[in-house]
Nucleic acid binder design. Structure first.
Length: 856
RNA sequence: GCCGAAGUGGUGAAAUGGCAAACACGCUACGUUCAGGUCGUAGUGAGAGCAAUCUCUUGGGGGUUCAAGUCCCCCCUUCGGCACCA
């Protein structure tokens, strides 16, 4: 009777057994094994994961399982990023409370999806960010930031999404639109909001990117650009008609200061009102009004024609005494630098376009050859020699930059300055389903932090009205708002905004180290034992947002002495996205519900099992590349598992694999085997070697690891045929004792190297074949196999013979042939001799055990 | 515009500067089967040839090298990020 591979018969059985045996529990004080913190980005509990989502969990699980088998004390936790807007939206459309909806989704995703994929999480450490035992400590950490003046309230122009009815962080605005609503243009509003001072850490966040050698280059560069460091100077220009008013500009090119032909202020700059002459007022007011409405539209269309109006006043260039006009123009941004720039048309593309439009003078001050040209065709942006620049003439512009900064500082005209593009992190949200900001507004005492012993400030569950209309729902609840001031006990109001959910996810990896601690966010000893994370796996969409915020949190908490690492994630792996043909668009697109191209997990697991899903996901593309889901491809892996299943169960039925035979552990004697047996024995050692290397952190070549397993299984069937089997079954075939020992050895090692990738079938066959009894335990707790290096090389190799780099012949040769012998072999070869003919041999290249190249 | 990644059979892909196409999907044939499926085996880059065999082939063009898919330069295409940041 041929046994059929039916994964549904045993996958859930093993999931339950692993859980009962607690084999994936990490040990907080293991002194014998090195620690390994394996982390996967925790999901938002949106309700239903599809096969596209499963890729990341599969990858992270394989890494965790491999490390566990290699003797590491592995921490592999999971949790839920459970606060956020979709829960409120679902609440409105389904008339369900956000909490109920979220908890229901978590239950399904954990029990029906992640567990059924065969993941090896330590569920004791599960964290849910919307639970008060978690957000208690989010609030406590916020107060630490507040006490260290890293959480501040300030009035600033902020991004407002009319659809979300809340403000957004800079990082949550994409192409001028809300990250959740690409069709909704974000509005600018001047509001007083809470910010975390991430800009205080701009320099270390940038500098320490160099330490993250094992992060994808693209992520590092994206962060570098986002932080956007510019070095230059702040220069002051005195207003001609008002000598007590100075306009300060930031420039990266102080070396071009002799070429200034005008100054431009941002339309929102408060100086505009003061400096506009009565004659110009009407035009300026009109321009400002237009600019208010134009900015976003302008950005959407990408049009970059220059507009502006003069204010009627002038400034004196302190370097050369030139008197130049002041303009306003919307190409100058209020929230970068000083909201004012000096216009140097000869050496800046934008200034050049502006000067051309308004017919302003273009003065060349840097020249490629040291000679001033008659008229410039376009702005000259490179370094060169100073001209028209008084006493700096003749200097190299890079040199002049330093000299001019020095000169400005000595004469109180300015100073060197570094500017960052990074803005402070706006964290207030006028929404309900988030972590309450633990502060109280008291008329007498001002802003008062909620004392530690009164934490958490509980998010009210009962009596909330979620309407989706303006203002925080919490603000409409008197029972929440009205509170006694912690300091003076007088009547006071609670802060009603909640925190950006990215705060919740900026420290969850720290909480995992001590997930259930009721007394503190995490015990020092535990967090410092586990941190930093050794391997983080997640999507590239978090390249800036989550990864930058988490780095900031780690550095701030380090300075508060709460953790002692500089960087949270030592190694980062960004898996590629999963795509599939979308019948809606007729194109191959990212798998998602809205595109109608999802493959459900439950459905797939029922038909082919979790192991086949895992193998296909790992096999179909390299880990960082895009992966197109294909049913046929997945079925291919299902067939491969069936081949293993039949091979092993037949051996069990033939009595070759049973606990007794396996327990006696007859070791394979290489020299006793026939040629084909030797070659199979070698194949086993080669496979262990190759898979070990492919699964290592240096490679993560899961696709080729599986290909090596395929090759080994093909080799097993081939050998079976050589032994006289006609239909690929071992049943009814006579084997020698040495052959039986070889099969036992081969199957055992195949199951071991396959275990991290296909955990269920490996565990099931491990038991059926008797290895579980012999080795006393689960395959996932068994030590990773070793190999004999000498058996991974063939004794007889194929030597490639070339003439002028072209292959002429391939001959069999013993391994380890010396260079003279190899050369002699080549020269004795008929084809080579014919090819050379009478021509003179100029050179012979010998690559030992590979090739001989004769150059003529 | 600037920055980054990639381009290899019918398809997904593999290849420390040293045999291009491993492995898988698909397809073809044979065996198994009443039949279909499953399963097992063999074949499958393109072109020429009865055949042995020969020629060509890693987006395009140059270069370095005994030897280039791989290294260098230029160009094209696709995808991703940033985008009036002074």
């Amino acid at each position: 009777m041929v046994s059929q591979y039916v994964p549904q018969d045993f996958e859930e059985k093993w999931q339950a057994k692993w859980e009962d045996a607690k084999i994936y529990w990490a040990n907080d004080d293991d002194k014998d094994r090195p620690k390994y913190y394996s982390l996967v980005m925790f999901p938002y509990p949106s309700g239903d994961l599809h096969m596209g989502h499963m890729r990341v969990y599969t990858i992270s699980d394989v890494i965790s399982r491999t490390k566990r088998m290699n003797g590491f004390n592995v921490l592999n936790p999971m949790g839920w990023d459970a606060f956020g807007l979709p829960a409120e939206n679902a609440a409105m459309s389904r008339k369900m409370h956000p909490e109920g909806w979220t908890k229901q989704n978590i239950r399904f995703m954990r029990d029906e999806q992640l567990k059924k994929l065969g993941t090896s999480f330590d569920w004791r450490r599960e964290v849910t960010t919307c639970d008060s035992d978690y957000y208690h400590w989010t609030q406590w950490l916020f107060l630490q930031f507040f006490k260290h003046k890293l959480a501040v309230r300030k009035e600033a122009p902020v991004n407002w999404c009319p659809t979300c009815q809340t403000v957004l962080a800079n990082e949550q605005v994409e192409n001028g639109a809300c990250w959740r609503h690409p069709e909704t243009t974000v509005e600018q509003r001047l509001m007083s909001q809470w910010f975390l001072k991430i800009t205080d850490y701009a320099e270390p966040l940038l500098a320490d990117l160099d330490k993250l050698e094992n992060w994808p280059t693209s992520v590092r560069i994206m962060q570098q650009n986002w932080i956007g460091k510019s070095e230059g100077a702040l220069l002051s220009f005195v207003v001609e008609s008002k000598p007590n008013v100075q306009i300060s500009v930031f420039t990266t090119r102080p070396d071009t200061v002799y070429g200034v032909s005008y100054l431009v202020l941002a339309p929102e700059n408060p100086l505009v009102a003061k400096l506009t002459t009565p004659e110009c007022k009407a035009a300026v007011d009109k321009y400002i009004e237009e600019a208010k409405h134009k900015t976003e539209l302008d950005r959407m269309t990408g049009e970059k024609t220059k507009t502006g109006v003069p204010l009627g006043t002038h400034v004196v260039n302190p370097f050369n005494g030139d008197i130049v006009p002041i303009w306003i123009a919307d190409y100058v941004l209020m929230n970068y630098g000083t909201g004012a720039v000096m216009g140097v048309p000869a050496h800046d593309e934008r200034d050049f376009a502006f000067a051309k439009t308004f017919n302003l003078p273009i003065t060349e001050v840097i020249s490629p050859d040291g000679k001033a040209s008659a008229a410039l065709e376009e702005a000259f942006l490179e370094q060169g020699t100073m001209v028209n620049s008084g006493k700096f003439n003749g200097l190299n512009s890079a040199e002049a930059k330093k000299k001019i900064i020095e000169y400005a500082a000595e004469n109180k005209l300015g100073e060197g300055r570094t500017n960052f593009r990074l803005r402070d992190w706006l964290i207030s949200r006028q929404r309900y389903w988030g972590c309450p900001i633990p502060l109280v507004h008291c008329e007498k005492c001002g802003i008062v932090p909620v004392p530690d012993e009164q934490l958490p400030v509980v998010l009210p569950i009962e009596g909330v009205e979620i309407t989706g209309e303006g203002g925080s729902p919490l603000g409409r609840m008197d029972s929440f708002v009205k509170v006694a001031c912690p300091t003076c006990k007088g009547a006071a109001r609670r802060e009603t905004d909640t925190m950006d959910t990215f705060i919740d996810s900026s420290w969850y990896f720290l909480r995992y180290a001590d997930a259930k601690n009721p007394k503190e966010a995490f015990a020092n000893a535990k967090v410092n034992y586990w941190m930093p994370v050794d391997q983080y796996v997640g999507g590239i969409e978090h390249a800036i947002l989550h990864l930058l915020y988490s780095r900031f949190f780690t550095k701030a908490l380090r300075d508060m002495k709460l953790v002692n690492c500089d960087e949270p994630f030592t190694n980062l792996l960004s898996q590629g996205m999963v795509t599939k043909f979308s019948p809606q668009s007729g194109r191959i697109e990212k798998m998602s519900k809205s595109r109608g191209n999802v493959v459900g997990t439950t459905d797939f697991f029922k038909r082919y099992g979790a192991d086949a899903a895992r193998l296909f996901t790992l096999f179909a593309a390299p880990v960082e590349a895009e992966l197109e889901w294909s049913e046929e491809g997945a079925v291919g892996q299902y067939r491969f598992l069936g081949r293993i299943w039949r091979f092993v169960t037949d051996l069990v039925e033939s009595g070759i694999l049973d606990p007794k035979a396996v327990g006696a552990t007859p070791s394979v004697v290489h020299d006793n085997l026939d040629e084909k047996g030797k070659s199979l024995h070698s194949l086993v050692h080669k496979t262990i070697k190759a898979v070990t290397a492919d699964l290592s952190a240096e490679r993560f070549n899961f696709n080729t690891a599986i290909a090596r397993c395929h090759e080994m299984v093909n080799g097993l069937y081939k050998y079976l045929q050589d032994c006289g089997s006609e239909n690929g079954s071992t049943i009814g075939v006579e084997f020698t004792a040495d052959q039986k020992a070889l099969f036992i050895f081969a199957v055992k090692n195949l199951l071991l190297v396959l275990a991290p990738m296909a955990p269920h079938i490996s565990e099931e066959l491990w038991e059926q074949a008797g290895f579980a009894a012999a080795e006393k335990g689960f395959i996932h707790m068994t030590k990773w196999p070793t190999f004999d290096e000498t058996l991974t090389f063939d004794n007889q190799i194929e030597l490639v013979l070339q003439v002028n780099g072209k292959i002429v012949n391939k001959v069999s040769a013993p391994r380890g042939l010396g260079k003279p012998q190899a050369e002699e072999l080549a020269m004795g070869d008929n084809k080579i001799r014919t090819r050379i003919g009478t021509q003179t041999i100029r050179k012979v290249i010998v690559v030992p055990d590979k090739l001989v190249n004769v150059v003529i």
